[in-house]
Amino acid sequence: MKNSLQEHREQYGLSQRELAEHVGVTRQTINAVEGNRYDPSVELVFKLAAFFECSVEDVFHPDVDVATTASHHE
């Protein structure tokens, strides 16, 4: 899942460690999410969006083909 977490964090002038402390995870977790090496839990996704006062979709961009997914549910 692609994300713009680093951009949001930098806009707030926070280090990875500072953001991690605000949302209750380790700096390594923030680093891995920013590097697209780790898909965060739903809980963490919502905590991050709430912290940045934006929608989940403003920070996280799933690699989902909506047309393909929709056709499987018809």
Rank of each mutant, 00 (worst) to 15 (best):
K47T: 03
E18R: 15
E7Y: 07
G24M: 08
V23G: 14
Y38N: 13
V56Q: 06
A67G: 04
A49L: 01
E43C: 03
A49V: 03
N31P: 00
V56R: 03
M1Q: 04
A20H: 07
D63E: 15
R17N: 08
P62D: 00
Y38K: 11
M1S: 10
V23C: 12
N3E: 07
S55R: 04
E18G: 06
T29M: 14
V59G: 05
Q28E: 14
R17P: 00
V45Y: 01
V56W: 05
F46A: 11
E21R: 11
V64C: 02
T69V: 12
D63Y: 06
H61E: 05
V33H: 02
A20E: 06
A49P: 04
V64F: 07
V56C: 08
Q28S: 15
S55F: 00
K47I: 00
E43V: 13
Q11D: 13
E21M: 08
Q11T: 09
A70G: 00
F46I: 14
Q28H: 10
G24L: 08
N3I: 03
F60N: 11
A50S: 11
L14K: 12
R37Y: 04
S55H: 02
S55K: 06
F51V: 03
E21G: 02
G24W: 07
R37P: 00
L14N: 12
V64A: 05
P62L: 02
Q16H: 11
N31G: 12
L5N: 05
M1A: 08
V66T: 10
P62R: 01
V59W: 00
R27W: 07
D58N: 14
H22M: 11
N36I: 02
